[in-house]
Simulated assay, not measured.
Amino acid sequence: MTDWLGPEEWQAVRLSLKVSATAVAVSLPLGLLCALALAKGRFPGRQLLNGLVHLPLILPPVVTGYLLLVVFSRQGPIGSVLEPLGVSFAFRWTGAALAAAIMAFPLMVRPMRLAFEAVPPALEQAAATLGASRLRVFVTVTLPLALPGVVAGAILAFAKAMGEFGATITFVSNIPGETRTVPTAIYAFLQMPGGEGAALRLVAVSVALAMGALLISEWLSRRIARRVAA
Rank of each mutant, 00 (worst) to 15 (best):
A23K: 05
G79Q: 07
G45P: 05
T181W: 00
R110K: 11
K40E: 10
I155M: 12
S27M: 14
A99K: 04
G95K: 02
F72C: 07
V228F: 03
V71C: 07
E8V: 15
G163T: 12
F189L: 13
T170H: 06
A99C: 09
L214V: 14
V109M: 01
Y187M: 10
F43Q: 06
M1F: 15
R136S: 06
R134T: 14
R223F: 13
H54Q: 14
Q47V: 12
G65H: 00
G194L: 11
V24P: 00
L123K: 00
A25F: 13
M162W: 11
V172T: 14
E178D: 00
F105E: 00
A126S: 12
A37K: 04
R74T: 11
Q191G: 13
R226I: 07
G86Y: 10
Q125A: 12
G76D: 08
S80H: 11
D3Y: 14
M1S: 09
G149I: 00
V203W: 08
V19R: 05
T179Y: 04
L32D: 01
E196T: 13
V87Q: 11
E124P: 03
T168D: 06
A100P: 02
M108H: 04
L36D: 03
T94P: 01
F91K: 06
A229T: 10
Y187P: 07
V26R: 07
P7K: 14
P84V: 15
A167Q: 07
L200G: 15
Q75M: 12
S16M: 08
L214K: 07
L59F: 08
A210F: 10
N50C: 06
F89E: 05
F72Y: 12
A146M: 07
P84E: 11
T184F: 04
I58S: 09
I102S: 01
L147H: 05
V141N: 02
G153S: 13
A230V: 15
L67K: 04
A115F: 04
S221K: 00
R180Y: 00
L57H: 05
T168L: 15
L32V: 13
L130W: 03
V207F: 15
A101M: 08
L55F: 09
V119G: 02
S88H: 15
P176R: 05
L156M: 14
P176L: 05
P183C: 15
